[in-house]
Write a protein that binds this DNA or RNA. Structure first.
Lengths: 359, 359
DNA sequence: CTGTTAGCGCATTCAC
DNA sequence: GTGAATGCGCTAACAG
């Protein structure tokens, strides 16, 4: 590239062009661009004028090379679907913007190996990592370069890596207490996928609260995978059983809705014969019939909180934040059979003013 | 930085370290790293060994500075919710990975000004832009630096910017033809938000097909905003009208489901008294009662196709791709009142094997 | 307050 | 086949 530099692909104006045009040194231009104080008003004005006129924009890579800062964080997500994904990103994006961080996204990771590859690809471009690894198997996460700060969401992390999670365990116990308070005795549970952290925590909460509140009661568990279809199948199975439960706590709303559809098809009254509840409070939860009682977890806050923590960690790498937890909130609608004092049949979607899907 | 360079923040091994350790020049290391042929097997072996041992990873910024390539594309999204968002990202991410591109995401743009700011922040870091700008007002998009290749999705773009879109117009007409074929005459429409490209196209399709198939028929339109709540309100309004329609074509599934809930609350039989259809085919569409007839649009393909086009554009900036379109497909379930030959009541969610929400 | 200059880490000519 | 040297665009010492 010595003699005849190959035609620069996107030849754009550099700091040198500005300096020459404004009759100053690149140092002064740099100072103005970075908002340093030590520049004469007149000089600053002249430089600013040229910058505007030439539409000069600092070259990011060059700046990074010099400052060792990229202002980017990497976000590693598994193969996620639906509302959870979008709300998480929404929270992450908003918080990142506030911190002046850009988001390098890598989603759709089926397994830990893929995730490791993604991490490698991000090496050097990001100042921190945000990872959602619901797989119980987190051994592969150990390969993360220890140098870069990382925050784990809804993951079981060995060691004291700073993490943040929805309190699935506590939420499940709360839901069970509610069902029991409603008078239900035989309460079944539809689980999420095996090897999923939250699914595991919710099941554990179900079992523990059952054992605590109804000593001797036998847990009744059907395996699902968080999909509507699996909830549908579970609903059929449960309704057909000899010991038919009088309440079903599904591991998430999607399965609860699938279960509802199955019971409806079978002519089983909900909540009359069997009560059904979910977890997550997806936007549609208030619009199915009967409206779904569920635990509301603020996914937006999960994403936002994770970024806040990561930003703090980037600023102070030595800071030792303890793991934190977000408590879900019980949302009582109709499917649980709780007697309600209100008389309105309008769906309760007080929060979330606008819910759109189409672009 | 002349005398005593400040302690490098994330001191990591550089190409120089490798060169020194392997007793070669940085040029050879560079050749090996970039897979050039002209390196002796023995030399290559030695270098490779050192690279592994030192865990050397090329510094991205430095490489970018020198090559003028970042291998990143910017994705600009509006304030999106739900399934649409996640599927779009899924498609984008998968395709980007195939093309060896990283995704710099920036979402939650309420208006064009915010989007312009996001573009500015990405300037220089991305080789191309993917933008979803459903706002009808695209004047602000003109500010995009013309130098960087861009692909627009579901947007009305003046000029011949390469774009890709779901054929909302054609889909709406197809849906209307279906409703008419089912014997419905008074067909109402619930629109999406004003100033939204797809909402506009669907309404246009509704009006055009109505005029074409039933000359003289009077269009009956209620304004919605793509949210379940607005669909609920529209359903109430429609049911209360003197000239009650016998079919309702909602601008998207969320509103259709809201409408369904309203009619259920009012005791109006669906599809008996009023048929209801939607647009999008969200995963839950098959699980509400009655199961929703809708138009299936492959959002994943939208994202994937957009990235493919962008990658092509980056490779050949001069290439003039024409705008392309993705045709949605009619999915007939129960809510439209079509007589069905099958006898299965199981939800039809043949495709989409797994649908999860929770992490 | 301003200019000069030395790197940041890497790719790439051009001699050898 | 290999190495020495140059420049990518910018920041931050340092000298003036």
């Amino acid at each position: 590239m010595a003699r005849r530099p190959l035609a620069r692909p996107h030849a754009s104006t550099t700091i040198n062009d500005v300096a020459r045009e404004a009759q100053v040194s690149v140092a002064s231009v740099s100072r103005v661009v970075n908002g340093h104080a030590n520049v004469l008003p007149e000089t600053r004005r002249r430089i600013t004028e040229v910058i505007d006129r030439l539409r000069y924009v600092p070259h990011t890579a060059a700046r990074s090379l010099s400052t060792r800062r990229t202002h980017m964080i990497g976000v590693l997500l598994p193969d996620l679907h639906g509302e959870f994904f979008s709300e998480l990103i929404r929270g992450i994006d908003a918080a990142a913007r506030e911190h002046g961080l850009q988001v390098l996204l890598s989603s759709s990771h089926g397994d830990a190996a893929e995730m490791a590859a993604a991490v490698r690809a991000m090496h050097g471009r990001v100042e921190g990592l945000l990872v959602l690894a619901p797989q119980l198997d987190t051994t592969a996460l150990r390969e993360l370069p220890p140098a870069v700060p990382a925050v784990f969401m809804n993951s079981r992390v060995a060691g004291r890596t700073p993490s943040l999670a929805i309190d699935s365990y506590g939420g499940a116990r709360a839901m069970l207490r509610h069902l029991i308070a409603c008078g239900h005795r035989a309460i079944a549970h539809i689980t999420g996928p095996t090897n999923n952290f939250d699914a595991h925590e919710r099941e554990r909460g179900y079992r523990d609260e059952l054992a605590a509140s109804q000593p001797g009661a036998r847990p009744q568990v059907v395996r699902g995978d968080f999909s509507e279809t699996s909830g549908y199948a579970a609903g059929r199975a449960l309704a057909a059983q000899a010991a038919r439960p009088d309440a079903v706590f599904a591991g998430n709303d999607a399965m609860a809705i699938g279960c509802l559809a199955a019971l409806d098809a079978l002519g089983v009254a909900v909540p009359g014969e069997i009560a059904v509840t979910g977890f997550d409070d997806i936007p549609l939860a208030g619009f199915v019939r009967p409206a779904l009682t569920t635990m509301r977890a603020s996914i937006v806050e999960l994403g936002r909180g994770a970024v806040d923590r990561l930003a703090g960690l980037i600023a102070q790498p030595d800071a030792r934040l303890a793991a934190a937890t977000l408590s879900p909130e019980l949302v009582i609608r109709e499917s649980c059979g709780a007697k309600r004092s209100g008389r309105s049949r309008a769906p309760s979607s007080s929060r979330r003013p606008r819910r759109r899907r189409s672009p």
